[in-house]
Design a protein around this nucleic acid. Structure first.
Lengths: 318, 318
DNA sequence: GCAAGCACTAAAGATAATCTTTAGCTTATT
DNA sequence: AATAAGCTAAAGATTATCTTTAGTGCTTGC
C-alpha cells in the first residue's frame, strides 16, 4: 500500500510554507479554492484537521506539527530532484514568426506575458534571451491559407487598403477623387501577394474606378516594415493590412487616404502552429492561451474599426 | 512554479525500487500499464528517457541516476510523514451484521478478502483482530425492506421453505404428502417474521393444502443458528431461507423435505450500508466491492437452485 | 531451434480526480 | 459600520488517470 494524496501533501506543505492558500495557488497555478480542496480532501481522509486558519495566516495543527518537518524535507528533496532533472527549469520558448508579425505585433506585446512569467526566456526568430537551437521551434506563426482540419490556431485575418502618411493624406484630399492617384507614386508590397483576395494597385484602382496610368510601376517591397518606412518618408502610398498597425493608426502616425469601404478582408490569415510535444510544457500551453487571447483583442479592434465604416459586411470568424 | 508529475515520480521511484512495473502496480493498486504510463508521461515531458528495461529488471538511465538518491530520500520522508499521520495505517474495518449473516455467510468468506489484504484488520460485531470502538461502524449489514432511493447495496433476497435434517426427510417421505406433517414437530423461526412474503407454518400448510392440527404450536427461535441446531438434532422442521445455507444444502447436512416450488422469495433482503466517510478509505471501498461480488455469487447460486425446479418464476433482481 | 510465458507498450474508451466558477461567510482593516 | 481579503461550499466542466485489449520483444523450457 503506497501512499496517496501526494498532491494534497504538496498543497499542504506549500500553503504552510507560504502562509496562505492564495499564495500556494499562485505557485501551483490553480485557484485558492482548489488548494483548499486538496487540503480538505486529505483532512477528510484522515478524519482530522491539519491546518487552522489563525489571524492572517495558516498554522499547522498539533497533529501535523510533528510530521511537518519531514514533509518539508520530502519536498525539499523533490525540489532537488526537479532541479537535477531540469523539471522546473526556467523555461525557454522558441518562436518562429513572419518578421513583420514579430516586429509589429508580437514583440510589442510579449512584455505583458513575460511580466506574468518572469522565468520564461524567449527566442523569437533566433534572437532574444534564449540561445538559438536548430529544429527546436515550439511555435510557428505564419500568414497563409487556412488549412482544413489543422490544429493550428487562427489568430486573425487582415484587412487591406491603401495606407499613407498623414501628410500625403492631406495633400491628396485636395484632389478630386478620381484623379487623386494620377501622378502620385505607388509603392508595391508583396507581403499579401499570395493572398487571393488582396488586390494589387491595378486591381484596386480599377475596382474603385480611379484614373491612373501605369499602376504597376513603382518600388516593390517584400516586408511591411520597409514599405511603411517609405510611406512614412512620404515616398508614396501602399496597399497594406491594418491588423498589425493598430497603434500607428490609432496615434495618427499612419492614416487612411481612402474610405475603409474600399478595403478588403484577406483570405489568408495569421496562424500559429505549436509542436504537439511542446504543448506538454505548461509554460508553452500558457503562451498559447495568451497568444490566442491577445489575437482576439486585435481581431475585435480590427472588426470594430472596419464595421464602424461598413456595418453590414462581417468577416468569417475563427 | 511548483513541481508537477508527483505521481510519475512516485511510480518511477517505486518501479525502480521494486524492479518491475508489475510490482509497483501491486503496491499502487493500479495496473502495470498505468505505471508505465505514469513514467512515460514524465519522460515525454522532460524529453529524455529515465528508465531502461534491462534483462529482467528496470534500471535508471544515466540522466536519472544522479537524482535517484534524492528521489528515494524524498519518498522515504513522505513515508515517514504518512506513518506519523497514520495515513497508510494497517487499516481496520468495523462491520456490524445480523448475527446469522455474520456466522453463516460473512465469516466463512472473509478469509478470501484477508488473503488479498493482509494488513486489514476486521472487527465483526465487536469481535475480531481489531479492538471494538463505539460509534465507528464502517459497514452495517441487515435483513429488511429495501428502502427506496437509498445508497445501500442490496446483497440478495432469500428463498424460504421447510428445512429438515436428511434423516427426517427420509422419515417423512414415507408418509402420504397431505399427512406428512400431522403429528410432526414444527419449529418456528422468527428471523423472517417481519418479512411480508414469508409464510409462517400455518400459512404455508394452508397454501400447500396439508393437514396439521395446531400448526402454531412448537418451539420458537430468534436466530437461524439455534433453529438449525435443533433441526440437525432431529427436533423438527423449520421454515428457513436457503441463501445462508449453501454449503449445508450442497453437502447434504441439511435437506429439503418438500419441493422447491413450495418455497417463496422473501420481500426483505440482505443489505449493506456503508458510512459515506468510511468509503473515502480505499480498503473500505475494496471491501465493499468484494462484498457485492461475493453476494452476486450467492445470488446466482440461489437463483440456479430455485430456477432448476421452477424455471418460470424469477425473483426481481437488484 | 521453436513455442510458450512473461513483461512492457500503445491506443481507445471509460472512469475518476481535479479544477473553475459563483456565491456566501468570517475576519481584519479603514 | 463598511469594505476588502481570504477561505469555504456546491455544482458543473475539464483533465488526468486508469482499464482494457491487442501487440511486441525477450526469456525460458522443450
Amino acid at each position: 500500500m503506497a501512499l496517496s494524496h501526494l498532491k494534497s501533501l504538496q498543497a499542504l506543505e506549500l500553503a504552510l510554507r507560504l502562509g496562505s492558500l492564495r499564495a500556494a495557488g499562485r505557485m501551483l497555478w490553480i485557484t485558492p479554492a482548489a488548494v483548499g480542496q486538496r487540503i480538505k480532501a486529505l483532512e477528510d481522509y484522515l478524519g482530522i484537521d491539519l491546518v487552522v486558519r489563525g489571524r492572517s495566516g495558516l498554522r499547522p495543527t498539533s497533529e501535523l506539527s510533528g510530521a511537518l518537518e519531514h514533509l518539508r524535507a520530502a519536498f525539499h528533496e523533490l525540489d532537488t530532484v526537479a532541479t537535477m532533472l531540469n523539471l522546473q527549469r526556467g523555461e525557454e520558448i522558441h518562436v518562429a514568426a513572419t518578421s513583420d508579425f514579430a516586429d509589429f505585433w508580437l514583440k510589442p506585446r510579449i512584455g505583458s506575458f513575460i511580466a506574468e512569467h518572469p522565468h520564461v526566456l524567449f527566442c523569437i526568430n533566433g534572437e532574444g534571451d534564449a540561445p538559438l537551437r536548430i529544429g527546436q521551434v515550439d511555435c510557428e506563426i505564419s500568414f497563409g491559407p487556412q488549412r482544413p482540419n489543422s490544429r493550428d490556431d487562427l489568430l486573425f485575418r487582415d484587412f487591406v487598403l491603401p495606407i499613407s502618411s498623414p501628410e500625403n493624406t492631406r495633400r491628396i484630399s485636395n484632389v478630386a477623387l478620381r484623379e487623386r492617384l494620377e501622378g502620385f507614386p505607388l509603392l508595391h508590397l508583396d507581403f499579401y501577394k499570395e493572398d487571393p483576395s488582396t488586390p494589387n494597385w491595378a486591381a484596386w484602382i480599377k475596382a474603385q474606378r480611379l484614373r491612373r496610368t501605369e499602376p504597376n510601376r513603382g518600388i516593390r517591397f517584400q516586408r511591411i516594415k520597409l514599405a511603411l518606412e517609405a510611406v512614412r518618408a512620404n515616398a508614396g502610398l501602399t496597399i497594406c493590412g491594418l491588423a498589425l498597425l493598430g497603434p500607428y493608426i490609432d496615434d495618427g502616425t499612419l492614416s487612411l487616404p481612402f474610405a475603409v469601404s474600399t478595403g478588403q478582408w484577406t483570405h489568408h490569415a495569421f496562424q500559429a502552429h505549436f509542436r504537439p510535444d511542446a504543448l506538454l510544457r505548461p509554460q508553452v500551453k500558457r503562451f498559447r492561451e495568451w497568444l490566442v487571447a491577445q489575437a482576439a483583442v486585435t481581431r475585435d479592434w480590427l472588426l470594430q474599426r472596419v464595421q464602424s465604416a461598413k456595418p453590414l459586411q462581417r468577416p468569417g470568424r475563427r
